[in-house]
Amino acid sequence: HSLRVHINGKDFEVHNADEHVIRALEELIRRGADADELKEFLERWKG
């Protein structure tokens, strides 16, 4: 899957995101994670 996440006016393109990554991202958003947390998660995932 390809996923586009809009954080703090920046678009993050997440390519080849598997279900696990997408679910983790949705969980963060549901918990009310702020932009920094989401960005950190995506950067860690992209490795």
Rank of each mutant, 00 (worst) to 15 (best):
L3N: 07
H1N: 12
E26T: 13
F12D: 00
A17G: 05
A24H: 11
E37L: 07
L25K: 00
R31W: 09
H20D: 13
H15M: 08
E37Y: 11
G47F: 09
L3F: 14
L42C: 07
L25Y: 05
L28W: 06
E40S: 12
I22G: 02
K46C: 08
G47I: 11
D34N: 12
G9I: 01
L28E: 05
S2P: 14
K10D: 05
E40W: 05
R31L: 14
E40L: 11
A24F: 07
I22F: 06
D11K: 09
D36M: 09
I22E: 04
E43I: 12
S2E: 07
L42W: 11
I22L: 09
I29M: 08
R31G: 13
E27T: 07
G9S: 01
D34P: 07
H6K: 08
G47H: 10
R44N: 15
L3C: 12
A17L: 09
L38C: 03
H6Y: 05
E19Q: 13
V5L: 08
L42Q: 02
A33D: 02
L38I: 13
G32T: 02
L3G: 03
E43A: 10
V14Y: 06
R30W: 10
F12T: 01
E43V: 12
I7G: 01
N16G: 08
R44S: 15
E19V: 12
V5A: 03
E43M: 08
I22V: 10
E40I: 11
I7L: 08
L38K: 00
E19G: 07
I7S: 01
G47Q: 13
E26D: 08
H1E: 14
D36W: 12
A35S: 12
R30F: 13
K10R: 12
N16F: 11
W45A: 02
H1K: 06
G32Q: 07
K10M: 11
V14H: 02
I7N: 01
V5H: 02
R4F: 11
L25T: 01
L25S: 00
L28G: 01
S2D: 07
N8S: 06
A24N: 07
G47M: 05
E13L: 10
D18P: 15
D36K: 08
E37P: 01
A17R: 03
R4Y: 11
A17C: 02
V14G: 01
I7Y: 06
R31M: 13
F41N: 03
A24Y: 09
E27W: 06
D34G: 12
I29N: 02
H20K: 14
L28S: 01
L42H: 03
K46S: 15
D34C: 04
L25D: 00
R31S: 12
G47K: 03
H20M: 10
F12V: 06
W45L: 09
S2T: 14
R30C: 07
D18R: 04
K10S: 07
L3V: 14
H15A: 07
H20W: 09
L3Q: 04
L42F: 12
H15E: 11
R44E: 12
E37G: 05
S2N: 11
H15G: 04
F41T: 05
D11P: 09
H1S: 14
G9M: 01
L28P: 00
R4W: 11
D36R: 07
E19W: 12
R4I: 15
I29T: 03
D34A: 10
E37R: 07
N8L: 06
L28M: 13
A24T: 09
E19N: 09
K39C: 07
N8F: 06
V14E: 01
I29D: 02
R44V: 14
L25E: 00
G32H: 06
R4C: 09
D36P: 06
K10H: 09
A33G: 07
R4S: 15
N8A: 08
R31H: 13
D11E: 14
V14F: 12
H20N: 13
L42I: 14
G47N: 13
E43P: 00
G9C: 01
V21W: 05
F12H: 03
L25V: 07
E13T: 10
L28D: 00
K10W: 04
E13M: 11
R23M: 11
G32I: 02
L3E: 04
E26Q: 12
L38T: 02
L25Q: 00
D11C: 04
V14C: 02
E27N: 09
L38G: 00
G32K: 05
I22K: 06
N16D: 12
L42G: 01
S2V: 14
D34W: 04
A24I: 09
L28A: 06
W45M: 05
W45F: 11
A24W: 09
R30E: 09
K39T: 14
E27C: 05
K39R: 12
N8W: 04
K46A: 15
E13S: 06
F41E: 09
I22A: 04
R23H: 13
R4M: 14
L38R: 00
H20S: 12
D11T: 15
E26M: 13
G9F: 01
H1P: 09
W45E: 03
F41K: 02
L38H: 00
